[in-house]
């Protein structure tokens, strides 16, 4: 084999196999197939998301909710007429 790098480069180019692969064996899938696969993956993800239970709220209640809860408590503690009733009235009622 020649030691001249340019000659070796010419030989390299000459030895390259330029026969294309048959179209049906190409590595990349047709775009329509890619679109179909993407659609199926999206549908599976949606189904999985829908089947998950909604997360329980964590951390402290929002301020408005705390105020509302406190108001109900005070009303029920200091209004004898409400004692024994199961119905919960709005705090501002």
């Amino acid at each position: 084999m020649s030691q001249d790098p340019i000659e070796r480069l010419v030989t390299f180019y000459g030895d390259l196999d330029t026969t294309p692969l048959p179209q049906h064996s190409r590595r990349r899938a047709p775009e329509s197939l890619i679109g179909l696969a993407t659609g199926i993956a999206a549908a599976i993800t949606l189904v999985q998301l829908a089947s998950y239970p909604s997360p329980e709220p964590t951390g402290p209640l929002p301020l408005a909710a705390q105020v509302q809860a406190a108001g109900l408590y005070v009303r029920r503690q200091h209004t004898p007429a409400l004692e024994g009733h199961t119905e919960v009235l709005p705090w501002h009622a």
Binding site: L16, D17, T18, R27, R28
Partner: peptide
Amino acid sequence: CHIFHIAVKVTGSRDLAE
């Protein structure tokens, strides 16, 4: 085939040529 032939020779890589 002609396109692939040019691409292989220019890139030196069948993978890129595809």
